[in-house]
Structures are given as structure tokens and as C-alpha cells.
């Protein structure tokens, strides 16, 4: 009886849709990496700015559970809803924003044989799903009925137009080389040579566009603390604020999973352990992909301690006048590589 129950639970958890959306790279992994990334961001900024960073709660592990304490505080705090807001969109925006920022995971494979939903154009679907969360950001800004929120939403809407094109163009620059729009095939083609060596131009453009998309420094313009309090999320408190703060980190992690699949070889080097099908085909590839994504995310949070904040016109000028052209050059470079390969 008990054995069959345990087997039932195991089968439910290992069922690909549930495993993907709950364990890896879904909710559990993203929450843990979220805590790790925010802690690492504060710690790195502390070290570079001649301080210690969070330390007081657990000195022996460097204050690593500070974020758990913060999360507990957010969960127990009263959620204040101002009288002037448009209540339903105000409540929906951060919740739906967090869930929708997780959504691209549904199209991202993290192992060669184990998909949430098998599809042949998963890169396009994943990129399309990453473009949704900013709409919820603008919805939050509009529903908050606050001038800081409105300025933040306007800045975000300016930035969307700038970075989405760069992200998609540089992803196409990689897709042209692999000749496929399927993540699994693209990763299996990177067995000997990673995409970042084949097309470094698109990789750099993608990296900078992700910095811009997720509000990392120096593009933290839409929620500039010193200028417009918290941008679109100024009026939020309690758990809603915690969720809204997590949106940009979740988006960054998801973008970086895409980045590591497109440019950093995904689950390569791929090896199997005889006799353990689940470990060798699911756990090890998932760990490799998530580690790569975490390392790229750590380099992104590292920029907070170094750069200042650009003005909106500087960021937009840089995006349209420089990085857009870089993305197009990367696309041309990828096409040229493909053409040369066909000729030779």
C-alpha cells in the first residue's frame, strides 16, 4: 500500500510537465536561484564597496539566509491598497507578472529526451513568451495612479521597444548558424564548438539586451530607486512588492537559461552513467544548464557594483544607434558563416 503510494507520488513528480514547471527549471529551482542571486548581488556589491553586505543573521555562512528572513517579512506584512488605485489590475499585475515571467520555461528543454511539451520551434515560442511580462509592468504602472509609477511605466515602454528587437535579432543570429528553431537540435549541434565561439557578436548583443530587459545596471532605468522610488511598483507593499521585485530576477534567470542553451552549449559536455537513466538523462543535464545560467546571472548582478545608472536617452541612444547595429552585424556574420559552410 505504502510502496504503491510512494511510486504514485514519484510518478507524478517525474511526469515531465509537473517536473518541469515545479522542480527544474520551474518554480523550486527559480525560487532557490532567486534567493541565491539577490543574496549574491548584495554580497558582491558589499565586497566591492568596502563593506560586508548581509552578515548579521547567519555569520558563519555569510548571511545567506537573510533573503529567507526578508521573504518571511514580506509574507507577514500587511498589504496596503491605496484608495485611488484601480484595484483589480493593481492586484493582478505583480502576480500575473511573476507567473508569466516563469512561462518561457514551458518551451525550454533542459535535457535531450525530456520535454514539457515536444515542439519543433521551441526557440521562437520561448522568445515570444519572454516578451509578455513588461505588459504587466505597464499595467501595474497605469493602475497604481501614481506619478512615479507612471514615469516608470513610460520608461519601461520606451525600453521594451529598444531591447526586444536586439534580443530577437541576436537569437536569430544564432539560429541561422544551427539552421533550426529547436533547442534540442541546436544544443546537439554545439557538441564540439559552442555558439559563443561561432557567433560572439550576437552573444554580446544578446547579453547586453538581457541586461537592459531585466533592469540590471547600467540599464536600471525603469525602477531607478534614487529618481522614481521603485518605478511601476512604487505603490506596492508586502508580498505583492516581494513578487514584483522577483519578476526581474526571474526574467533574468529564464533569459540566461535561453542564453546558455543558444550560446554556451546547453547540457554539453553530455555524458551518461550506465544503468541510471533518470540521473544521466535528466538530473545531470539539468544541473549543467542551471549552473551555466547561474554563472551568467552572477556576472549580470556583478555589474550593479560597477556601473552608474544611464539616463533614458543615453540608454535608448546606445540601444538604437549601437547595439541594434551590432545585432544586425551578428545576423550577417551568422548568415555568412552558413553560406561559407555550404560553399566549402
Amino acid at each position: 500500500m505504502l510502496d504503491s503510494f510512494i511510486l504514485f507520488i514519484k510518478n507524478i513528480i517525474l511526469w515531465p510537465p509537473v517536473f518541469y514547471l515545479l522542480i527544474a527549471p520551474g518554480l523550486v529551482t527559480i525560487l532557490i536561484s532567486l534567493l541565491l542571486l539577490i543574496w549574491a548581488e548584495r554580497k558582491i556589491a558589499g565586497r566591492i564597496q568596502m563593506r560586508y553586505g548581509p552578515l548579521e543573521i547567519s555569520p558563519k555562512i555569510g548571511g545567506a539566509i537573510q533573503l529567507v528572513a526578508d521573504l518571511t517579512r514580506y509574507m507577514l506584512q500587511e498589504i496596503i491598497i491605496p484608495r485611488t488605485v484601480d484595484t483589480l489590475p493593481y492586484l493582478i499585475a505583480p502576480i500575473a507578472g511573476f507567473i508569466i515571467s516563469l512561462l518561457p520555461v514551458a518551451a525550454i528543454p533542459i535535457s535531450p529526451i525530456y520535454f514539457p511539451s515536444p515542439m519543433t520551434n521551441s526557440i521562437i515560442v520561448a522568445l515570444a513568451l519572454t516578451t509578455l511580462p513588461p505588459i504587466l509592468n505597464i499595467l501595474a504602472a497605469w493602475a497604481s495612479n501614481n506619478k512615479f509609477s507612471l514615469i516608470g511605466g513610460a520608461r519601461e515602454s520606451f525600453l521594451i521597444a529598444a531591447y526586444e528587437l536586439i534580443v530577437i535579432l541576436s537569437a536569430i543570429g544564432a539560429m541561422v548558424i544551427y539552421g533550426t528553431s529547436d533547442f534540442t537540435e541546436a544544443v546537439s549541434l554545439q557538441k564540439n564548438l559552442w555558439g559563443i565561439i561561432l557567433n560572439p557578436i550576437s552573444a554580446i548583443a544578446f547579453y547586453v539586451a538581457v541586461l537592459m530587459a531585466t533592469g540590471r545596471f547600467p540599464f536600471e532605468i525603469a525602477e531607478a530607486e534614487a529618481e522614481i522610488v521603485m518605478g511601476a511598483y512604487t505603490e506596492y507593499s508586502g508580498l505583492l512588492y516581494g513578487l514584483s521585485m522577483g519578476i526581474s530576477y526571474t526574467r533574468m534567470f529564464v533569459y540566461n537559461v535561453i542564453f546558455s542553451l543558444l550560446f554556451l552549449g546547453g547540457w554539453q559536455p553530455f555524458f551518461t552513467i550506465g544503468g541510471h537513466i533518470f540521473i544521466s538523462y535528466v538530473l545531470i543535464p539539468a544541473t549543467v544548464v542551471i549552473l551555466k545560467a547561474l554563472i551568467v546571472s552572477l556576472t549580470m548582478v556583478f555589474t550593479r557594483a560597477i556601473y552608474g545608472r544611464l539616463r533614458i536617452d543615453q540608454a535608448l541612444g546606445g540601444a538604437w544607434k549601437f547595439w541594434f547595429l551590432v545585432a544586425i552585424v551578428g545576423l550577417i556574420w551568422g548568415s555568412a558563416l552558413t553560406y561559407l559552410q555550404q560553399v566549402i
Binding site: I44, R47, I48, M50, R51, Y52, F302
Partner: peptide, 8 residues
């Protein structure tokens, strides 16, 4: 600075 922090 990340590798060798100078803390004050």
C-alpha cells in the same frame, strides 16, 4: 575588489 576586498 571582489577577490581581495578592502573593507573599512
Amino acid at each position: 575588489f571582489l577577490v581581495r576586498p578592502l573593507r573599512i
